[in-house]
């Protein structure tokens, strides 16, 4: 079992409210990602669940039990830290075995569990090394190994991939996803990277300035962002947001249209624009264009498009894909 509920959780540092009352329902076995820009409180929220910070108000429930006043060592959760936080004076074997030793597990069981975790994570050859002798990816695996051996109620990941290089990050992303598939345990994962959020999550929680901006599946957030903040945060390149005549015509204070939902023509269309820069990636072409009377827009074309700086083009949004927002930035249905 591993369901987690937050009820009106608040956290103040002095007079500054870092978490402004968060309600959240995480079901057993879900992979939930907290995402948001730096300073939005996502790490603090994770630490509140872990018990490493205590809440100023509200309740944290694990499997229906109120654990708000329970210390981190008794919540039965496992955490993978950004810096991995491996014990530098212990071998890999001891690092992984440490939670089991704390739980006073019999020695033969510890050995068996460590061996199993090491096999799962391809760490068999490194068990007698110190963390200092391992590469970043290997350290990451040890940290995960340390988390899985104790069979926790839920796993907490605090930006675990941010210290790895790009290639390794993709690989570890896949591995963590597979791990979730195997273990079928609740996982809460904090990241500032929306690609990680989109690819890994069953459910994404977007946080903005200490409050939940939207909760939903990756595609819900992509297709139906509740507000401008989510609309801009999810999706790459960023959604184009236009106000003025184009918005007024559609009965909104501002409209958003994703770069991949704009049709490009060299002859006619809604907006006349001039290409400033075309980025040819092979699989895609990103066109940055100056739209007359509406500012800058980014357009994504699949494959290679024969567009170059200085070309005049016409842009037309795909009407069903236009998102409308009111003056407060909330979605207009």
């Amino acid at each position: 079992m591993g369901s987690i509920q937050l009820k009106g959780v608040r956290k103040d540092f002095g007079t500054v409210a870092v978490i402004k009352g968060v309600d959240l329902d995480i079901k057993d076995g879900e992979f939930v990602v907290f995402v948001g820009p730096s300073g939005c409180g996502k790490s603090t929220l994770l630490r509140l669940i872990a018990g490493l910070e205590d809440a100023t108000g509200g309740q944290v429930l694990i499997d229906g039990k109120d654990v708000t006043e329970v210390g981190p060592s008794e919540r039965g959760l496992a955490m993978v830290f950004q810096s991995y936080a491996l014990y530098p004076h212990m071998s890999v074997r001891k690092n992984i075995a440490f939670p089991l030793m704390m739980a006073k597990t019999p020695k033969d069981q510890i050995d068996a569990k460590v061996a199993k975790a090491a096999a799962t994570l391809n760490l068999g050859d490194y068990l007698d090394r110190r963390p200092g002798q391992l590469s970043g990816g290997q350290r990451q695996r040890v940290a995960i190994g340390r988390a899985i051996v104790r069979d926790p109620t839920a796993f907490l990941f605090d930006e675990p991939l941010s210290n790895l290089d790009a290639a390794l990050r993709v690989q570890m992303r896949v591995e963590i996803g597979e791990l979730h598939g195997q273990l079928k345990k609740t996982m809460i994962y904090v990241t500032h990277d929306q690609v990680e959020a989109m690819t890994m999550a069953d459910k994404i929680v977007v946080l903005d300035k200490g409050a939940v901006a939207q909760v939903g599946s990756p595609l819900t957030l992509y297709n139906k962002p509740d507000n401008l903040f989510v609309a801009r945060f999810i999706g790459s390149p960023t959604m184009n947001v236009l106000s003025g005549a184009a918005a007024a015509k559609r009965g909104a204070a501002s409209i958003g249209v994703r770069p991949e939902h704009v049709d490009v023509s060299t002859t006619a269309g809604e907006w006349k624009a001039k290409v400033r820069l075309a980025e040819h990636l092979g699989s895609d072409t990103f066109v940055h264009a100056d739209v007359e009377g509406a500012g800058q827009m980014t357009v994504r074309r699949e494959g290679e498009a024969a567009l170059h700086a200085g070309d005049t083009i016409y842009l037309t949004p795909q009407e069903p894909r236009v998102h409308r927002f009111d003056a407060a930035g909330l979605r207009v249905a």
Partner: peptide
């Protein structure tokens, strides 16, 4: 000494003395 390491110990179920 990074504080995270002490926090990791807490998450791993270590009490204050441990």
């Amino acid at each position: 000494i990074p504080f995270e390491i002490l926090e990791a110990a807490r998450m791993d179920g270590a009490g204050l003395w441990q």
